[in-house]
Amino acid sequence: MLLEAIDVSKTFRSRRSSAPVHAVQNATLQARPGEFVAIVGESGSGKSTLARLLLDLLDPTEGSIRLDGREVGSMDRTERRAYRRSVQAVLQDPAGSLNPRKRVVQAIGEVIRLHGMARGPAEIRQRVTEVLELVGMEPAAAFMDRFPHELSGGQRQRVLIARAIALDPRIIVADEAVSALDASVKAGVLAVMADLKDRLGVGYVFITHDLPVVQKVADHVYVMRHGRILEHGPKDAIFADPSHPYTRELLAAAPALP
């Protein structure tokens, strides 16, 4: 399977201001199951807009998003539903992505039911147990009936990952999924993501401003600024020998312990 953005652009126009915002310009990107692709950039670089384009949450102004060569924009309802199942999202703010009035088992169970991944309460509960254990929330029974406010930030982020993998996705688009977490919790969530890559063969498009994390986990890196992809390549090549001055500036700015 291959997920591609081909020469994709997104321009936002507002009625009141005359200047359109070119959030993403001519971006081309490839992601595959089993691969950790990182898009790095600072605020305003267009990286989150690119994520939304990949997730079919926004329509591109120009260019196309394709899955195995098939353009998402021209898919029928059934195909689009399948697309949304195989390309899942995990976003930054776990508190904002979980309904505060739904227990963990309901939050994960409802997407399983909606996409017909399991039938009947017992089967759904079984599937919820499986995915919670996959993200390291063991024993699952201890977490199932909790509300989001009864979980820590790292646990909420794991619930979101569990909800995403409940649909057997091939690629997860994670937008700043670990940025707000403390180092120890961040390391835990990243370990879970790496583990899922190995065990389920899921791929990631990992959007972040956190370069040390990228260096740690990514296979392939895209660097974005002002809506454009400045350079991309295998992680080791980008970190060892960045060709663009902005990438060098980013690398130098990453804070590190002595």
Binding site: S184, K186, A187, V213, Q215, K216
Partner: peptide, 20 residues
């Protein structure tokens, strides 16, 4: 010690990710 180990595990290439 545990906190520093987890921070360093995010940047050191040769260590496994460590969560307290």
């Amino acid at each position: 010690q545990a906190l520093l180990r987890s921070v360093r595990s995010l940047t050191d290439r040769d260590t496994d990710l460590y969560s307290i």
